[in-house]
């Protein structure tokens, strides 16, 4: 009996090795070619002043990084990323949680509302940007139409650096809260009803049940949601370009739209790569730090 088990497990181990030898190389090759190499290349280009033609030749050391941090538009972009993170965490996630609490029950119409709130997430980012560009348009947009109907003048939100950023944040919350709501609904439905019953028997009120049953039970989902929010905010790009084009005065760029507008369209591939490297370092630091600190047990 014992002998056969050992033999079996030996055979299984050998099988694993064979399987690894067969299945690993294609994946590893693709991963290397499409992930590892580009990362390495970006790091390498970042040390060159290169316009994308021929091979990079003009080695400039850390100059790209220095001019990057001296660039006020980049600092604005970095700050904007932090603002997007703050708004995602302080407004978007609580809103998503509130909606999830309302819609997790099997009440009449809850499925329909879930679908409606989730729809913006499915919409292509560029389409969302264009739709809201129209909504916020001071001459033809419905928002301006509404303020004029109320007797105020037309509003040109996208023409003011501050309000354009507000407009961008509105679109972000509108577009992504549905996704987090779905995560929370899935989490809420996984909570054992008995816990609520037990809490109720122990005399816990509605808020106490929320605070001491729902939140702890939902915490893996909340941690995941925060993780997605932060990484999503750091890599945010698609809505910015159609909505504001990073303007006015480069006040609504994120790091990625800055990379695109200052690196790619200006044919400064070396400089753009340096932006990419900075972004990569921030994302990796956050991802590993966060997982290590908060998601250890999940």
């Amino acid at each position: 009996m014992t002998v056969t088990t050992i033999q079996e497990s030996k055979g299984a181990a050998g099988g694993v090795w064979v399987a690894a030898l067969i299945f690993l190389p294609p994946a590893l090759l693709l991963f290397t070619v499409f992930v590892i190499l580009p990362i390495g290349e970006a790091a390498w280009y970042g040390f060159y002043n290169w316009d994308g033609y021929n091979r990079p030749q003009n080695f400039v050391g850390l100059k790209n990084y220095i001019s990057l941090f001296n660039n006020s538009s980049f600092r604005t972009a970095l700050l904007n990323n932090l603002i997007i993170i703050a708004v995602s965490l302080a407004i978007q996630l609580p809103l998503a949680l509130a909606m999830a609490l309302l819609l997790a029950r099997r009440a009449f119409g809850s499925v329909a509302f879930r679908l409606i709130f989730f729809l913006p997430y499915i919409l292509a980012d560029v389409a969302a940007g264009l739709i809201f560009r129209f909504i916020f348009d001071g001459d033809y947009g419905p928002l301006s139409g509404a303020t004029q109907a109320l007797g105020f003048g037309p509003v040109y939100m996208l023409a003011s650096p501050t309000w354009a950023m507000v407009a961008l944040l509105v679109v972000i919350v509108w577009k992504y809260f549905g996704f987090h709501m779905m995560l929370f609904i899935a989490g809420l439905q996984g909570i054992d009803r008995n816990l609520y019953e037990a809490a109720e028997i122990d005399g816990a009120g509605a808020f106490q049940r929320f605070r001491f049953v729902t939140i702890p039970q939902l915490s893996p989902m909340i941690k995941l949601s925060v993780f997605f929010s932060v990484i999503g905010a750091l890599q945010f790009f698609d809505v910015v370009v159609p909505l504001t084009g990073g303007g006015p005065f480069n006040a609504t760029n994120t790091m990625v739209s800055f990379l695109y507008l200052f690196g790619i369209t200006r044919m400064r591939v070396g400089f753009g790569s340096a932006v990419g490297v900075v972004l990569f370092v921030i994302c990796v630091t956050f991802a590993f730090g966060y997982r290590r600190l908060l998601m250890r047990d999940d």
């Binding site: 001071g138 001459d139 037309p154 040109y156 023409a159 003011s160 303007g247 006015p248 005065f249």
Partner: peptide
């Protein structure tokens, strides 16, 4: 008004 956000085709 709002020329800072007006696109060229607009």
């Amino acid at each position: 008004a709002g020329y800072l956000s007006t696109s060229h085709p607009q």
